[in-house]
Design a protein around this nucleic acid. Structure first.
Lengths: 335, 335
DNA sequence: TGAATTTGTGTAAGCGCTTACAAACGCGTT
DNA sequence: AACGCGTTTGTAAGCGCTTACACAAATTCA
């Protein structure tokens, strides 16, 4: 049972297809009689407009494409939610594509979206995202989220990870810690690198306040945090504070601490990054740098909507930078 | 800079638009010379096929619509991920629409998807979802996830919440508990009702094994679990085991317990439902009934793919029922 | 060598919709 | 009665693509 088309409705109402279209879209240049006849016919036939066809004819899909690296965990759920809520407010739909391990895959996804979306919201945390520019269609308005794609022509919304790294060190020093360690995220991740850079910069600037510092490699996964903390504990000199590249690694680190019979924050203060929901529930509750992920998604979409509204020769590529916010819970509170 | 069209490519390669189409789509009835000429021209012009137009012409969008009640929290993130991974494996795209408070909204979303998707994956946990059938277009293949929409014509994948409720009671009794309480989910939620029904049925069947039982109302939110547990504790007779309609309420209940200076499982055993990631991290680690949410999404899509492959007069509406799995952690371990 | 294929290519008719344009129909004016 | 005007309507040309069909060219086979 193929759905009825506008042609069917027009025939049923005994008017031209053009009039039917006008009536259905509520244009005002239609006689009342015709309008009701068309609307009744449409109802009778269970007519539902064909979005695809309409999009083709109007050259507007009312859909935006959302490209994510990997839809895993609370982080992405929040991004999607932020984007979805904002999109819905603007009457836009969401074509989502996740799980892109690398740029090539993302490129394929972009191709496939071409002609189905009015704009693109892209999150690509890979360090080499620069090259992404080559893959993206020039003709589509684009906003990047927390990515390094800095081709300038696109809008972007990013988190100030560097500042976050510095805030972490400042906080830890203020708690009286002097031996700081950082468990870093994957080297291929731009955000992870920035956080680490913030850490290192702040440590360097702190001068004598920091007696010792180290960086241990992790990969954003809980277990890598666990392992890294173990290594830290096994070494000659132990840190009295550990700042991790994200919350999940902090959770892992907390477990390693417990395993070693140590306690946070008394023995070692622990500070995460992101403020995922779990952070509130672990023991001790995890101090962290909150990133308003929902806002990231929401504002990202708003930015894109603005870009869409602009005449096509979009000049001003707006940029938003969000600062992380220090959330002090138990795991880092020494005083 | 509008993107190049097939026509442009054809002109550039000096062939007919039909040949260009064939070359690009890799059909075999094209001379090698023509093929390379077209491909080169396409590359030169940065041609990207217009998905929308192709969909219209072929009457196949390679997109499936995903309708969710509300994209919140880990649960939905996992569903989306399951669906996305499976979709990608089949070369399908995902048009996602979330945050549907009620059926009317969902209906609007469905309309908007019409003509943009080949099939629909719907999750609508509302008790009155029966009526949803009216809203859904008859012409589209449909699979429901964890919903009550039982119009028979559609495939479905559901969780055996009733069985889960019974398993909860069985487990609690086996731990030696005799005074069982249930903190229920919202009455408007079909899954919540089934879990409760399982609880009540099992209690009734347990005869003298259960000395006392009660049901306290919650709404799936953490705080409602907290409040409900408080009420339970304030009453004359206290339960020695509490089974909650989902994990978040269990988490809230755990906090209420802590507030009252009581301990789980020693004073009161606590058992949740869902096995969200947080369950592993709370103190004590939460026992729960695991629902393979990722699998729910993945298999839901697989079901839909099967339905799509079937000739349009789809007769067999396949149904899958997943049983929850008891995950015993600390919060319910008395022995 | 001519007929019967087997290619390869172009023409054109859609897919379901919107929308410029022109035609048709009132209507009040002169 | 002829005119201009504003309102309704239908005709038709797209949107960018696929694909049935027809036709020409390059085979093959008797």
């Amino acid at each position: 049972m193929r759905g009825a088309t506008l042609k069917d409705v027009a025939k049923e109402a005994d008017v031209s297809i053009a009039s039917a279209s006008r009536a259905i879209n509520g244009l005002d240049n239609v006689a009342e009689g015709v309008r009701t006849r068309v609307l009744e016919a449409a109802a009778r036939l269970h007519y539902i407009p064909h979005g695809g066809a309409r999009a083709l004819a109007m050259n507007r899909t009312n859909t935006i494409g959302l490209l994510l690296p990997d839809i895993h965990g609370e982080f992405f759920s929040e991004i999607i939610r932020g984007v979805d809520v904002a999109a819905r407010a603007h009457g836009l739909h969401l074509l989502v594509s996740g799980s892109h391990g690398d740029i090539r895959e993302a490129g394929v996804a972009v191709m496939a979206m071409s002609g189905r979306v009015d704009g693109l919201l892209v999150m690509s945390p890979f360090v080499d995202s620069q090259d992404m520019g080559a893959v993206l269609p020039v003709s589509l308005p684009l906003v990047t989220i927390a990515s390094r794609i800095g081709d300038g022509s696109s809008g972007s919304i990013t988190v100030d990870n560097f500042a976050g790294g510095r805030m972490a060190v400042d906080h830890l020093i203020r708690q009286g810690c002097t031996r700081l360690a950082h468990i870093s995220g994957p080297a291929t991740n731009y955000e992870a690198r920035e956080r680490q850079r913030g850490f290192e910069t702040a440590v360097a600037e702190a001068g004598t306040h920091v007696a010792w510092s180290a960086v241990e490699a992790g990969d954003f996964g809980e277990d890598s945090g666990f392992q890294a903390m173990r290594r830290l504990l096994a070494a000659d000199v132990r840190p009295d504070a550990v700042f991790t590249g994200n919350d999940m690694m902090a959770v892992g680190a907390l477990f390693a601490l417990k395993e070693a019979g140590l306690k946070a924050p008394d023995d070692i203060a622990v500070l995460g990054f992101d403020d995922v929901p779990i952070a509130r529930f672990v023991q001790p509750a995890l101090s962290t740098l909150r990133v308003g992920v929902y806002e990231l998604g929401r504002q990202g979409l708003e930015l894109l909507v603005k870009a869409l509204a602009r005449p096509s020769g979009a000049p001003s590529a707006e940029r938003i930078v969000i600062s992380p916010e220090l959330v002090i819970r138990e795991s880092s509170k020494k005083v």
